[in-house]
């Protein structure tokens, strides 16, 4: 039974895994067959946060940071090794039916979880019965999803014959048809082109508004986070590094700036003594510490660069810099 609390709470959340390890060589293979060795790996540790009902929060971090593990802990696919989570007052790992009818876990590039021979409409009807959706509610949701996703155009198509974008739309429809109040979106725009990804964000924005839904989103595409989330949780190496408004990430910029310059001759980062340096159509951008700006601009002018300007770095760069600093 749920306790009296809406929203999502994570309290000292930890999850560890035992992963098998083996040396190389024939003898090691035989030894491994008889007696395995394991190493304990900590995927997430001591996560504390709470998310209010109706909030849209981005969960960001580099590969292997623990984002997917966190999402699985929040949805109840995994049980915590220590600490606890509540979602709308339920403990997710108990997987109570009333809780499951309230959440959707949408993963980019993930199959629909239904036999490929079925049509999209078959899958939708199956979910209608599975989630106990009244016929009138289903019809209403179907019409709405059709206006968002153009559902009728793909409803009679077999799942196996859908393109990636269509499969995403079908996947989204099958998950939204029972109107879940909590959405867990794990890299939802993976593999989608820019137009389809933009339309996905638009659908999500409208869904959240109309259903007062709570959303946690992980994405490597900063556009997803910037357009949907008012707040972000930055996670790295299993630990929470930042919890606050997206704009607040600027405080973490640690005074890194981007210098932009138009080159008149080929130039490398090494010549300027810089690691982060990239050129696109003779326009160079480089990441520079503020104290180093005078030296670098002088050098650029010596090399004949024109139109030199100093910019705030985009969010991707801020995060890359943040994560690089956290490396040992």
């Amino acid at each position: 039974m749920p306790v009296e609390s809406s929203g999502i709470t994570a309290d000292r959340l930890c999850r560890e895994f035992d992963v098998p390890v083996r040396g190389s060589g024939v003898g090691e293979g035989l030894r491994f067959l008889l007696n395995r060795s394991y190493r304990r790996v900590t995927a997430v540790t001591d996560l504390n946060f709470s998310i209010s009902r109706g909030e849209v929060v981005g969960l960001i971090g580099p590969n292997g940071a623990g984002k997917t593990t966190t999402m699985k802990l929040l949805t109840g696919v995994l049980s915590p090794s220590a600490g606890y989570v509540t979602v709308d007052g339920y403990t997710p790992s108990r997987r109570e039916p009333n809780h499951l009818k309230n959440i959707a876990f949408i993963r980019g590039g993930q199959p629909l979880g239904s036999p490929p021979e079925l049509t999209v409409l078959d899958v939708l009807h199956y979910n209608r019965i599975l989630y106990g959706v009244a016929r009138s509610d289903f019809d209403r949701a179907y019409d709405q999803l059709d206006s968002w996703l153009g559902l009728r155009r793909i409803a009679d198509r077999q799942v196996r014959a859908l393109s990636l974008g269509e499969r995403m739309r079908a996947g989204l429809a099958t998950q939204l048809v029972y109107s879940p109040k909590y959405l867990f979106l794990d890299e939802p725009t993976t593999g989608l082109d820019l137009v389809v990804a933009a339309s996905f964000r638009e659908h999500m924005r409208r869904y959240v508004q109309e259903h007062d839904a709570t959303v946690i989103l992980t994405s490597h595409h900063m556009a997803d986070v910037q357009q949907l989330c008012s707040r972000v949780l930055v996670i790295d190496d299993g630990e929470l590094r930042y919890d606050g408004a997206l704009s607040g990430l600027n405080q973490l910029r640690s005074a890194v700036k981007v210098i932009r310059a138009e080159l008149s001759e080929p130039l490398t980062g090494r010549a300027l003594g810089l690691r982060s340096f990239w050129v696109e159509q003779s326009v160079a951008r480089m990441l520079v510490e503020p104290t180093d700006i005078p030296r670098v601009t002088d050098l650029l002018l010596d090399y004949g660069a024109t139109d030199v300007s100093i910019e705030d770095p985009p969010l991707e760069i801020v995060l890359a810099d943040l994560f690089r600093k956290s490396e040992p």
Partner: peptide
């Protein structure tokens, strides 16, 4: 395959 299946005693 030898190495792969050394991880699969139950399977074997």
């Amino acid at each position: 395959r030898y190495y792969e299946w050394s991880d699969s005693r139950w399977f074997l």
